[in-house]
Amino acid sequence: MPIYLARRVLAAIPVMLVVAVFVFLLLRLTPGDPAAILAGDMATPEQLERIRATLGLNDPILVQFVRWIGALLQGDFGTSLISSTPVIDLVADRMWPTIWIALITITLSVIVAVPMGVVAAWKQGSWVDHLVMTFSVLGFSIPVFVIGYLLIKVFAIDLRWLPVQGYKAPSQDLAGFASRAVLPALTLASIYIALIARMTRASLLDVLNEDYVRTARAKGLTETRVLFRHALRNAAVPVMTVIGTGFALLISGVVVTESVYNIPGLGRLTVDSIFARDYPVIQALILLTSGIYVLVNLLIDLSYSLLDPRIRY
Protein backbone atom coordinates (compact mmCIF):
# COMPACT_ATOMS: atom_id res chain seq x y z
CA MET A 1 0.00 0.00 0.00
CA PRO A 2 2.70 2.62 0.90
CA ILE A 3 4.51 1.85 -2.38
CA TYR A 4 1.24 2.21 -4.29
CA LEU A 5 0.57 5.50 -2.51
CA ALA A 6 4.04 6.85 -3.27
CA ARG A 7 3.70 5.77 -6.91
CA ARG A 8 0.36 7.55 -7.26
CA VAL A 9 1.67 10.74 -5.64
CA LEU A 10 4.71 10.71 -7.94
CA ALA A 11 2.47 10.05 -10.94
CA ALA A 12 0.51 13.19 -10.04
CA ILE A 13 3.56 15.41 -10.62
CA PRO A 14 3.75 15.01 -14.44
CA VAL A 15 -0.04 15.29 -14.59
CA MET A 16 0.09 18.65 -12.82
CA LEU A 17 2.96 19.79 -15.00
CA VAL A 18 1.08 18.98 -18.18
CA VAL A 19 -1.96 20.82 -16.82
CA ALA A 20 0.24 23.83 -15.99
CA VAL A 21 1.74 24.02 -19.48
CA PHE A 22 -1.62 23.43 -21.16
CA VAL A 23 -3.45 26.05 -19.12
CA PHE A 24 -0.69 28.62 -19.57
CA LEU A 25 -0.62 28.22 -23.33
CA LEU A 26 -4.39 28.02 -23.71
CA LEU A 27 -4.88 31.29 -21.79
CA ARG A 28 -2.31 33.10 -23.92
CA LEU A 29 -3.97 31.86 -27.09
CA THR A 30 -7.44 32.99 -25.96
CA PRO A 31 -8.36 36.50 -27.14
CA GLY A 32 -8.43 38.99 -24.32
CA ASP A 33 -6.28 41.56 -22.62
CA PRO A 34 -6.13 42.14 -18.85
CA ALA A 35 -4.66 45.60 -19.51
CA ALA A 36 -7.90 46.61 -21.25
CA ILE A 37 -9.95 45.62 -18.19
CA LEU A 38 -7.52 47.38 -15.92
CA ALA A 39 -7.51 50.62 -17.90
CA GLY A 40 -11.24 50.92 -18.57
CA ASP A 41 -13.22 52.14 -21.54
CA MET A 42 -11.53 55.51 -22.06
CA ALA A 43 -7.96 54.25 -22.32
CA THR A 44 -6.13 55.19 -25.48
CA PRO A 45 -4.04 52.61 -27.37
CA GLU A 46 -0.87 54.27 -26.02
CA GLN A 47 -2.03 53.95 -22.42
CA LEU A 48 -2.95 50.29 -22.94
CA GLU A 49 0.50 49.61 -24.33
CA ARG A 50 2.18 51.18 -21.30
CA ILE A 51 0.07 49.12 -18.88
CA ARG A 52 0.82 45.94 -20.82
CA ALA A 53 4.52 46.68 -20.51
CA THR A 54 4.20 47.33 -16.76
CA LEU A 55 2.41 43.99 -16.26
CA GLY A 56 5.01 42.13 -18.31
CA LEU A 57 2.41 41.04 -20.86
CA ASN A 58 4.57 42.13 -23.78
CA ASP A 59 7.36 39.70 -22.88
CA PRO A 60 7.71 36.57 -25.03
CA ILE A 61 5.43 33.73 -23.89
CA LEU A 62 8.42 31.56 -22.99
CA VAL A 63 9.82 34.28 -20.72
CA GLN A 64 6.42 34.69 -19.05
CA PHE A 65 6.11 30.90 -18.59
CA VAL A 66 9.58 30.48 -17.08
CA ARG A 67 8.90 33.40 -14.73
CA TRP A 68 5.59 31.90 -13.63
CA ILE A 69 6.79 28.31 -13.22
CA GLY A 70 9.94 29.48 -11.40
CA ALA A 71 7.85 31.40 -8.88
CA LEU A 72 5.40 28.49 -8.61
CA LEU A 73 8.19 26.07 -7.65
CA GLN A 74 8.99 28.43 -4.79
CA GLY A 75 5.35 28.37 -3.69
CA ASP A 76 4.54 31.79 -5.17
CA PHE A 77 1.33 31.76 -7.21
CA GLY A 78 1.82 35.36 -8.24
CA THR A 79 -0.33 38.46 -7.92
CA SER A 80 -3.69 39.18 -9.51
CA LEU A 81 -3.23 41.42 -12.54
CA ILE A 82 -6.50 43.14 -11.80
CA SER A 83 -6.70 43.61 -8.04
CA SER A 84 -2.94 43.44 -7.27
CA THR A 85 -3.76 40.98 -4.47
CA PRO A 86 -1.60 37.86 -3.91
CA VAL A 87 -3.33 34.99 -5.70
CA ILE A 88 -2.86 32.68 -2.73
CA ASP A 89 -4.85 35.10 -0.52
CA LEU A 90 -7.63 35.44 -3.09
CA VAL A 91 -7.98 31.67 -3.47
CA ALA A 92 -7.72 31.00 0.26
CA ASP A 93 -10.48 33.55 0.96
CA ARG A 94 -12.81 32.00 -1.58
CA MET A 95 -11.98 28.34 -0.86
CA TRP A 96 -13.65 28.00 2.53
CA PRO A 97 -17.21 28.89 1.50
CA THR A 98 -16.95 26.36 -1.30
CA ILE A 99 -15.47 23.63 0.92
CA TRP A 100 -18.11 24.11 3.61
CA ILE A 101 -21.02 24.08 1.18
CA ALA A 102 -19.55 21.01 -0.58
CA LEU A 103 -19.09 19.11 2.68
CA ILE A 104 -22.61 19.87 3.89
CA THR A 105 -24.10 19.02 0.50
CA ILE A 106 -22.30 15.71 0.19
CA THR A 107 -23.04 14.71 3.81
CA LEU A 108 -26.70 15.56 3.41
CA SER A 109 -26.86 13.78 0.07
CA VAL A 110 -25.29 10.57 1.40
CA ILE A 111 -27.49 10.52 4.52
CA VAL A 112 -30.65 10.89 2.45
CA ALA A 113 -29.77 9.19 -0.83
CA VAL A 114 -28.18 5.92 0.30
CA PRO A 115 -31.17 4.75 2.40
CA MET A 116 -33.48 5.92 -0.41
CA GLY A 117 -31.57 3.85 -2.95
CA VAL A 118 -31.44 0.83 -0.67
CA VAL A 119 -35.18 0.92 0.01
CA ALA A 120 -35.93 1.44 -3.70
CA ALA A 121 -33.84 -1.60 -4.63
CA TRP A 122 -35.27 -3.70 -1.80
CA LYS A 123 -38.83 -2.82 -2.82
CA GLN A 124 -38.14 -2.88 -6.55
CA GLY A 125 -41.28 -2.21 -8.58
CA SER A 126 -43.27 -0.99 -5.58
CA TRP A 127 -44.69 2.53 -5.14
CA VAL A 128 -41.68 3.38 -2.96
CA ASP A 129 -39.37 2.49 -5.83
CA HIS A 130 -41.43 4.56 -8.26
CA LEU A 131 -41.43 7.50 -5.84
CA VAL A 132 -37.65 7.38 -5.47
CA MET A 133 -37.16 7.13 -9.23
CA THR A 134 -39.58 10.00 -9.85
CA PHE A 135 -37.70 12.15 -7.36
CA SER A 136 -34.47 11.12 -9.01
CA VAL A 137 -35.65 12.16 -12.47
CA LEU A 138 -36.92 15.47 -11.09
CA GLY A 139 -33.64 16.09 -9.26
CA PHE A 140 -31.74 15.62 -12.50
CA SER A 141 -34.13 17.54 -14.69
CA ILE A 142 -35.00 20.72 -12.80
CA PRO A 143 -32.26 23.31 -13.20
CA VAL A 144 -30.60 24.23 -9.91
CA PHE A 145 -31.43 27.92 -10.24
CA VAL A 146 -35.15 27.08 -10.44
CA ILE A 147 -34.92 24.99 -7.27
CA GLY A 148 -32.86 27.78 -5.69
CA TYR A 149 -35.36 30.53 -6.45
CA LEU A 150 -38.28 28.34 -5.33
CA LEU A 151 -36.61 27.59 -2.00
CA ILE A 152 -35.79 31.30 -1.55
CA LYS A 153 -39.38 32.26 -2.34
CA VAL A 154 -40.83 29.84 0.19
CA PHE A 155 -38.32 29.82 3.06
CA ALA A 156 -36.77 33.30 2.83
CA ILE A 157 -39.34 35.64 1.29
CA ASP A 158 -42.68 34.12 2.35
CA LEU A 159 -41.90 32.34 5.62
CA ARG A 160 -38.84 34.47 6.51
CA TRP A 161 -37.22 31.54 8.27
CA LEU A 162 -33.88 31.86 6.52
CA PRO A 163 -31.81 34.60 4.85
CA VAL A 164 -31.96 35.01 1.08
CA GLN A 165 -28.25 35.10 0.49
CA GLY A 166 -24.74 35.52 1.79
CA TYR A 167 -22.06 33.67 3.66
CA LYS A 168 -20.70 33.94 7.19
CA ALA A 169 -17.61 32.07 8.33
CA PRO A 170 -18.52 29.50 11.02
CA SER A 171 -15.63 30.74 13.16
CA GLN A 172 -17.23 34.21 13.28
CA ASP A 173 -20.93 33.43 13.47
CA LEU A 174 -21.95 29.78 13.67
CA ALA A 175 -25.70 30.45 13.64
CA GLY A 176 -25.31 32.89 10.74
CA PHE A 177 -23.25 30.32 8.85
CA ALA A 178 -25.77 27.54 9.43
CA SER A 179 -28.79 29.61 8.44
CA ARG A 180 -27.10 30.72 5.23
CA ALA A 181 -25.84 27.25 4.32
CA VAL A 182 -29.19 25.45 4.51
CA LEU A 183 -30.76 26.62 1.24
CA PRO A 184 -27.68 26.34 -1.02
CA ALA A 185 -26.91 22.90 0.41
CA LEU A 186 -30.50 21.77 -0.13
CA THR A 187 -30.43 23.13 -3.68
CA LEU A 188 -27.23 21.35 -4.61
CA ALA A 189 -28.21 18.22 -2.70
CA SER A 190 -31.29 17.82 -4.90
CA ILE A 191 -29.02 16.76 -7.77
CA TYR A 192 -26.65 14.66 -5.73
CA ILE A 193 -29.44 12.89 -3.85
CA ALA A 194 -30.94 11.96 -7.23
CA LEU A 195 -27.59 10.77 -8.55
CA ILE A 196 -26.48 8.80 -5.50
CA ALA A 197 -29.92 7.26 -4.87
CA ARG A 198 -30.10 6.06 -8.46
CA MET A 199 -26.57 4.64 -8.38
CA THR A 200 -27.17 2.95 -5.01
CA ARG A 201 -30.36 1.35 -6.29
CA ALA A 202 -28.73 0.09 -9.49
CA SER A 203 -25.65 -1.32 -7.73
CA LEU A 204 -27.73 -2.95 -5.04
CA LEU A 205 -30.05 -4.59 -7.58
CA ASP A 206 -26.95 -6.22 -9.09
CA VAL A 207 -25.87 -7.81 -5.82
CA LEU A 208 -29.25 -8.64 -4.28
CA ASN A 209 -29.52 -11.73 -6.48
CA GLU A 210 -26.01 -12.94 -5.60
CA ASP A 211 -25.59 -16.27 -3.82
CA TYR A 212 -24.07 -14.73 -0.70
CA VAL A 213 -27.15 -12.57 -0.15
CA ARG A 214 -29.36 -15.65 -0.44
CA THR A 215 -27.04 -17.41 2.02
CA ALA A 216 -27.21 -14.50 4.46
CA ARG A 217 -31.01 -14.60 4.33
CA ALA A 218 -30.98 -18.40 4.71
CA LYS A 219 -28.86 -17.98 7.84
CA GLY A 220 -31.78 -16.03 9.30
CA LEU A 221 -30.15 -12.60 9.39
CA THR A 222 -32.46 -9.64 9.66
CA GLU A 223 -33.30 -7.90 6.38
CA THR A 224 -31.61 -4.69 7.62
CA ARG A 225 -28.40 -6.60 8.32
CA VAL A 226 -28.57 -8.34 4.95
CA LEU A 227 -29.13 -5.09 3.09
CA PHE A 228 -26.74 -2.75 4.86
CA ARG A 229 -23.98 -5.13 6.03
CA HIS A 230 -23.73 -7.64 3.21
CA ALA A 231 -25.37 -6.22 0.10
CA LEU A 232 -24.62 -2.49 0.41
CA ARG A 233 -20.95 -2.98 1.28
CA ASN A 234 -20.43 -4.94 -1.91
CA ALA A 235 -22.48 -2.47 -3.93
CA ALA A 236 -20.65 0.52 -2.50
CA VAL A 237 -17.70 0.71 -4.92
CA PRO A 238 -19.54 2.51 -7.76
CA VAL A 239 -21.46 4.61 -5.20
CA MET A 240 -18.16 5.77 -3.68
CA THR A 241 -16.95 6.77 -7.14
CA VAL A 242 -20.04 8.93 -7.67
CA ILE A 243 -19.70 10.52 -4.23
CA GLY A 244 -16.00 11.25 -4.76
CA THR A 245 -16.33 12.78 -8.19
CA GLY A 246 -19.41 14.66 -6.98
CA PHE A 247 -17.37 16.20 -4.18
CA ALA A 248 -14.60 17.17 -6.61
CA LEU A 249 -17.19 18.77 -8.89
CA LEU A 250 -18.61 20.75 -6.00
CA ILE A 251 -15.17 22.02 -5.00
CA SER A 252 -14.24 23.01 -8.53
CA GLY A 253 -17.13 25.43 -8.53
CA VAL A 254 -20.88 25.60 -8.69
CA VAL A 255 -21.25 28.97 -10.33
CA VAL A 256 -25.02 29.13 -10.68
CA THR A 257 -25.75 28.20 -7.08
CA GLU A 258 -23.03 30.54 -5.84
CA SER A 259 -24.61 33.35 -7.86
CA VAL A 260 -28.20 32.66 -6.79
CA TYR A 261 -27.20 32.59 -3.10
CA ASN A 262 -24.39 35.13 -3.39
CA ILE A 263 -21.74 32.80 -1.98
CA PRO A 264 -18.23 34.15 -2.55
CA GLY A 265 -16.81 30.79 -3.58
CA LEU A 266 -14.32 29.41 -6.06
CA GLY A 267 -16.87 29.10 -8.88
CA ARG A 268 -17.53 32.83 -8.98
CA LEU A 269 -13.85 33.60 -8.62
CA THR A 270 -13.13 31.36 -11.61
CA VAL A 271 -15.78 32.99 -13.80
CA ASP A 272 -14.79 36.54 -12.76
CA SER A 273 -11.13 35.79 -13.41
CA ILE A 274 -11.87 34.32 -16.82
CA PHE A 275 -13.95 37.36 -17.83
CA ALA A 276 -11.14 39.65 -16.65
CA ARG A 277 -8.42 37.44 -18.20
CA ASP A 278 -6.68 37.51 -14.82
CA TYR A 279 -4.12 34.90 -15.89
CA PRO A 280 -2.35 34.19 -12.56
CA VAL A 281 -5.67 33.60 -10.78
CA ILE A 282 -7.07 31.33 -13.51
CA GLN A 283 -3.84 29.34 -13.61
CA ALA A 284 -3.84 28.86 -9.85
CA LEU A 285 -7.51 27.84 -9.81
CA ILE A 286 -7.09 25.27 -12.55
CA LEU A 287 -4.01 23.83 -10.88
CA LEU A 288 -5.92 23.67 -7.60
CA THR A 289 -8.88 21.95 -9.26
CA SER A 290 -6.59 19.44 -10.97
CA GLY A 291 -4.87 18.74 -7.66
CA ILE A 292 -8.23 18.15 -5.99
CA TYR A 293 -9.28 15.73 -8.74
CA VAL A 294 -5.99 13.81 -8.40
CA LEU A 295 -6.39 13.66 -4.61
CA VAL A 296 -10.06 12.67 -4.69
CA ASN A 297 -9.37 9.93 -7.24
CA LEU A 298 -6.59 8.60 -5.05
CA LEU A 299 -8.88 8.57 -2.00
CA ILE A 300 -11.61 6.82 -3.99
CA ASP A 301 -9.16 4.14 -5.13
CA LEU A 302 -7.96 3.65 -1.56
CA SER A 303 -11.52 3.39 -0.29
CA TYR A 304 -12.13 0.47 -2.69
CA SER A 305 -9.77 -1.75 -0.74
CA LEU A 306 -11.51 -0.85 2.51
CA LEU A 307 -14.93 -1.69 1.09
CA ASP A 308 -13.89 -4.76 -0.84
CA PRO A 309 -11.11 -6.83 0.73
CA ARG A 310 -10.53 -8.55 -2.62
CA ILE A 311 -9.08 -5.30 -3.99
CA ARG A 312 -5.42 -5.03 -2.96
CA TYR A 313 -2.77 -2.52 -4.06
Binding site: Y149, I152, A156, I157, R160, P163, V164, Q165, G166, S259, V260, Y261, N262, R268
Partner: peptide, 13 residues
Protein backbone atom coordinates in the same frame (compact mmCIF):
# COMPACT_ATOMS: atom_id res chain seq x y z
CA UNK B 1 -24.15 40.19 -6.04
CA UNK B 2 -23.88 38.81 -9.54
CA UNK B 3 -27.60 38.12 -9.76
CA UNK B 4 -30.06 41.04 -9.77
CA UNK B 5 -32.96 38.83 -8.64
CA UNK B 6 -30.93 37.80 -5.57
CA UNK B 7 -30.16 41.46 -4.81
CA UNK B 8 -33.83 42.35 -5.04
CA UNK B 9 -34.83 39.40 -2.84
CA UNK B 10 -32.24 40.53 -0.29
CA UNK B 11 -33.61 44.09 -0.42
CA UNK B 12 -37.18 42.89 0.08
CA UNK B 13 -35.98 40.74 2.99
Amino acid sequence: MPDAQTSLNALIN
